[in-house]
């Protein structure tokens, strides 16, 4: 099973940043699957899930952005009430702290993933091994 990786880009908190980044990705023929933004006053970190992460990273660095590519946990969610709660219960039971999270929807809501950023992806996976969770 391939590990899902997320691309993070440093950005000053100014208008036009997303425009510049998405232009680089668009010109490079890279498909964006999900986006999330976390900001802290003057700056923020913009995060993408894309189809070709390595290519996207190289392209962005070449265009002068500060980029990092990190593994994330991608837990499958079913499109029905209570499913996110089911996953949250499992994470809590295994003592996994969520640094950041967002949802990544595939196939017109039929299938989606909860993207969870944790300190150590492998360790989290080990801890979650006995839970009835499906990963990306």
């Amino acid at each position: 099973m391939a590990q899902l990786r997320q691309i993070s880009i440093f950005a000053e908190n100014k208008p036009g940043k997303i425009e510049k980044i998405t232009k680089v990705l668009a010109d490079g023929g890279i498909n964006i699957l999900a986006i999330s933004i976390s900001s802290s006053g003057d700056f923020g970190v913009i995060k993408f899930i894309v189809d070709k992460p390595d290519e996207a990273k190289d392209l962005l660095i070449k265009n002068g952005f500060t980029v990092s590519l990190n593994e994330v946990l991608a837990i499958e969610l079913v499109d029905k009430p209570g499913d996110l709660h089911r996953v949250a219960v499992a994470l809590l039971r295994c003592g996994i702290n969520i640094e950041n999270a967002h949802v990544f929807v595939v196939n017109e809501r039929a299938q989606s993933y909860l993207i969870v950023e944790v300190e150590d992806v492998d360790e989290a996976k080990k801890k979650l091994a006995n839970e009835e969770l499906r990963f990306y």
Partner: peptide
């Protein structure tokens, strides 16, 4: 640079 705002802070 790390992906976390917390680290940058």
């Amino acid at each position: 640079f790390s992906d976390e705002v917390k680290r940058l802070e």
